[in-house]
């Protein structure tokens, strides 16, 4: 078991190092791309370009620059922004993290709640119309572009019905939990719901089909033969078994969202989170900030991947040998 965890986590380090190199190469070694020209702006003259090259150390060889950037990011922790010279990257990132976590955790509570309830209902209900209806809603959920849904929500709550039923909706933005818990809740309620729609759709669909697959397994037939009630089979065996899939899926989705996947929701609702920070810095070609946010994001994704794999190995000994 320990060797499995060891192998899993060394693979994790490998992936993280590869991603950092990949980001670096995308920005500095893509054929036909001159990073100095991007940093200097569209209409920079030769002299400015030379200055930019010198001051950003673009004239040094790639491996040297890569190592220097990594040293500043992880060892000295004093990496500074390209665009806003003097602004340190790590404080910028740590300021954005609470907003993203607030957004993702709240949405996760909502989508897990609805996803599990409706997933079990769709797979088990005796009422014939319920399964197709829930499945249809699930399909609509996964087909809604989150940025568009956010815009429509804004249209109704900020403009059309703002003077009547949605007068309680605060303007777009984010208020810290420690600043004012009630305002924090009000500001995030609609972003939570918007983000949760997509994932609730995914979870309903996955849970429903998992339960149906488990229900056709042999051991369920054994249970039936033993005379166990349908209720007991559904909750004690099928749902419990299917929840393993949901837990691992949740690990991955949570990691991805916390790592910046919530970008579109953050942009639409004006929440200054990690995704928004990354997006803004990408537009300015601010590589140090991008490097920091991408490393942070992929850390969460890779870490949650590894945690899920280890959990699987704990639950299922067969995986350990693979």
């Amino acid at each position: 078991m320990i060797s499995f965890i060891g192998r899993r986590f060394s693979a994790m380090v490998f992936v993280l190092v590869s991603i950092s190199i990949l980001v670096f190469l995308i920005f500095f070694a893509t054929p036909g791309v001159d990073p100095a020209a991007r940093i200097a702006g569209r209409n920079a003259d030769q002299q400015t370009l030379m200055q930019v090259r010198a001051s950003f150390e673009l004239d040094k060889p790639l491996p040297v620059r890569y190592l220097s950037m990594m040293r500043h990011l992880f060892v000295a922790r004093d990496l500074t922004s390209y665009v806003n010279r003097g602004a340190k990257v790590i404080p910028q990132l740590s300021q954005a993290i609470p907003a993203t976590f607030s957004l993702v955790i709240g949405a996760a509570v909502i989508w897990l709640f609805f996803g599990v309830i409706f997933g079990v209902l769709a797979a088990s209900s005796k009422r014939k119309w319920l399964d197709p209806t829930i499945s249809f809603l699930g399909i609509v959920g996964i087909s809604l572009p989150v940025f568009w849904l956010g815009e429509v929500v804004n249209l109704f709550t900020q403009s059309k019905f703002h003077s009547s039923i949605f007068s309680w909706v605060p303007p777009l933005g984010y208020v810290g939990l420690s600043v004012d818990p009630w305002q924090w809740f009000l500001h995030l309620l609609l972003p939570w719901l918007t983000l949760a729609v997509l994932y609730a759709g995914i979870y309903v669909r996955v849970l429903r089909s998992e339960i149906l697959v488990v229900m056709s397994e042999d051991y369920i037939k054994t249970e039936r033969a033993k005379g166990a009630s349908e209720k007991r089979i559904l909750y004690k065996h099928a749902t419990r078994m299917s929840l393993i899939t949901i837990v691992s899926l949740f690990g991955l989705d949570f990691g991805a969202l916390v790592g910046g996947y919530a970008l579109l929701t953050e942009v639409v609702f004006g929440i200054q989170g990690v995704g928004k920070l990354t997006f803004d810095s990408l537009q300015n070609f601010d590589l140090p900030v991008i490097m920091a946010t991408v490393m942070y994001s992929s850390f969460f994704v890779v870490f949650m991947n590894a945690v899920v794999d280890v959990l699987y190995a704990v639950l299922d000994p067969r995986v350990r040998r693979a």
Partner: peptide
């Protein structure tokens, strides 16, 4: 592991 949107956006 590279967040999909970040990879696509980069």
């Amino acid at each position: 592991a590279f967040p999909v949107y970040l990879l696509a956006i980069s």
